[in-house]
Design a protein around this nucleic acid. Structure first.
Lengths: 254, 254
DNA sequence: ACCTGAACACCGTTCAAGT
DNA sequence: ACCTGAACACCGTTCAAGT
């Protein structure tokens, strides 16, 4: 099953039993395809057309080559998508070490969300592959180093990080999907929001939900969403701080 | 494009511009297919085989019928999947009204996670369709009613709920994927965990991540994961409580 | 070492036709 | 009202063959 043909691939031993290969060919060929070029084209195509529209034939067409050529560099489509997935993690800017741990976590969550919104195809892939490519790893490690300064006992580190980054993942995912929908319908976010609100208003089943959304107050959806995100982030950080202060970080009584 | 053929479908006006139809045929046909039977078979097949393996032809085969028969009840595969998605929301047990709001939210998050783990195919679908079928709506409303008792100002309700349920969504999603992987590899969770840890130990790049995971302490992965989930939940609830107490629920200073 | 062409076993969906 | 069969325009991937 392995990629034993390609030169300059690492030994292929993955952390996962059926897991992804990691490194790719050293940038060598002057006029060949090259894995780098393929991955970049894949990301470009994913950004432009979305996950559903990307096929090996379509990608090959973009590269001016036959579908099967790509299979010389990659064993399966999944492997290619994993490479694309890790590739965009490069865009995540990691905070400096000397910043307060709270602010470091905040920045990481914001960057995480931004990356997911910029590349909506990342969400389903990140859910599917339990991926840790080298760039995603750098992101994860930075978060782990930040939580160490929180005062939480070590046994609670993973749980706390889970709260923060499952949140930024989910938030970025639905935000990205929403913006895709706006784009594909050719309407602005505020226009679509207005339409949806109007429809909700006509249906009594949705009364509670409508009230909750309206209770956020007036303003452009982008502004309100920003406030929601920051507030949720504040809640999470406050909760982590509180749990670090109040006790041993063990699961609270019921 | 609408489903103007089928009797007893509602008028098809969705909350979303390109959105899902909602109601289905009244349980009528004595020996026909019937939408209910189709949706149930779809859920069964999704549970047994996973999202990737479910096709219209495969489903039809299961029902002893031609692929095209299903298209009399449903316009597209997406529509069918949305119906299946809402269907499993019935399994979410809603807490009683007289329970403390904190415990109501906790229970909802636990049920949400449980549903996602039971039906791993739900996660990608919930991300794709910005769905609110009738059963998912009942779940959402219950959460909204709980947050009203938190003391948070109304403008912060959505942000707080977002923290909680994006978390349970993300947590349930990776847990479900992990268990699927164990099942498909035919190994127990603890076995696979041990394997992965052993591989991590051999790679210096993963030193920090390895330490974080090990810092959780000894024990079966199921137990440790349970503790992580409950701790994260406690953090979230503590944070929401704190933000409700400390101020106006506005975004805190930086 | 790198790339191609034909083929296999699939998809979702349309459309005309059957009962 | 409900179901079928054939067809269209796709998929990912294998395999033998080219240069």
């Amino acid at each position: 099953m392995a990629s034993d043909r390609r030169k300059a691939r690492d030994s292929g031993s993955s952390v996962w039993l059926s897991g992804p290969p990691a490194r790719h060919a050293s940038g060598g060929q002057p006029h060949g395809l090259g894995l780098d070029k393929i991955v970049e084209a894949t990301v470009r195509l994913l950004d432009a057309e979305g996950l559903a529209k990307v096929s090996m034939r379509r990608l090959a067409g973009e590269l001016g080559v036959t579908a099967m050529s790509v299979y010389w560099y990659v064993d399966t489509k999944d492997e290619l998508l994993e490479l694309a997935l890790d590739h965009v993690h490069e865009e995540i800017r990691l905070p400096a070490d000397d910043v307060d741990w709270r602010e470091r976590l905040r920045q990481l969550a914001r960057e995480h969300r931004r990356m997911l919104v910029t590349h909506p195809w990342v969400s389903p892939l990140a859910g599917e592959y339990l991926n840790i490519g080298p760039r995603a790893l750098a992101f994860a490690e930075c978060a782990q180093e930040a939580i160490r300064d929180s005062g939480l006992p070590a046994r609670s580190w993973l749980g706390a990080l889970s709260l923060l980054f499952q949140f930024s993942y989910g938030f970025g995912t639905v935000e990205g999907r929403w913006r895709e929908r706006c784009r594909s319908l050719g309407v602005s976010e505020d226009e679509l929001h207005g339409e949806v609100m109007a429809r909700l208003a006509g249906r009594s089943e949705y009364a509670v939900s409508l009230a909750t959304v309206q209770a956020r107050g007036e303003g452009a959806v982008g502004v309100l969403r920003e406030r929601d995100f920051e507030f949720a982030l504040d809640c999470a950080i406050a909760g982590i701080t509180e749990m670090g202060r109040s006790g041993t970080g063990s699961v609270g009584g019921r």
